[in-house]
Amino acid sequence: MRVLFSIVIFSLAVIFGFAGYTRFGLPLIIPAPPPQEAKISGEMTMDQFIALGKTVYEGKGTCTLCHNSLGRAPLLEQVAQVAPERLADARYKGEAKSVEEYIHESMVKPSAYVVAGFGKKGTNDTVSPMPDVSGGAINLNAAEMAAVIAFLQDVGGVEVTAQIPTGEAAAPAAEGAAPAPAPAADAKEALVKFGCNTCHMHPLIAEGGDMGPDLAQVAATAGKRKPGMSAEQFIVESIIDPNATLAKGFEPDMMPPDFAQQMTVAEMNMIVAAILNKDAAGGKPQ
């Protein structure tokens, strides 16, 4: 038993020695959190877009892991300047016509032109070791690649031709396919999402318009507007078929008729509940 005890103490001392050395003897490096996808909106200025390109270039794109002064891959600061020479080079195998296209092609088909000395070993500079940045671990979307192109053009001192994707184009670019917009989380969000506040006023929204009836007043009267219809039913009908019952003093065809297609059931319920001042799922009590 005494032997066993000694062995246990000895072993514990050894492993705690290792753990202690790790904790106190080595510098603590906190790994970076997993990267987020960059958000691109149409309101960006070109400067912001170039800055985004720089962030992607140094961050998510991981370009600087290899394109740095250690000589793993060519430096890219002048790539926009030398692109025309590359395109004229006999070894060029791609289809790009402009600087922008050339840089884009280099990102998705790196082997189209391999800078001498940087090819995969044994391929005589015909195959590039670089991955396709639009897939794999890097997985840049079209907008992010455009930002990187803008950044490289800016750094290279040539005219920036890469376009900022507009809001409509950027959203699909973010996932590579057209995703449904995220459903609203609560009534307030839903009211804003469908633009109710453009025309209506409601206590949940700070500023509302006066082109439609004040929604704060609807709760009191909705149940009595149409015989045989509850307040909920009336509001739902008014949302999906706005012209069915018009409030006094308001014009027909002002409200979009397609909310039935746009809203999820949950969103509709939240809005109805909010108009009725009820605390429905996700709705905030008054």
Binding site: P74, L75, L76, E77, Q78, Q81, V82, R86, A116
Partner: peptide
């Protein structure tokens, strides 16, 4: 550079 006798490092052009 002149005083120390060093010469500045020249970045290799992107195309070798």
């Amino acid at each position: 550079y002149d005083y120390t006798g060093h010469s500045p490092r020249v970045t290799a052009p992107v195309h070798h």
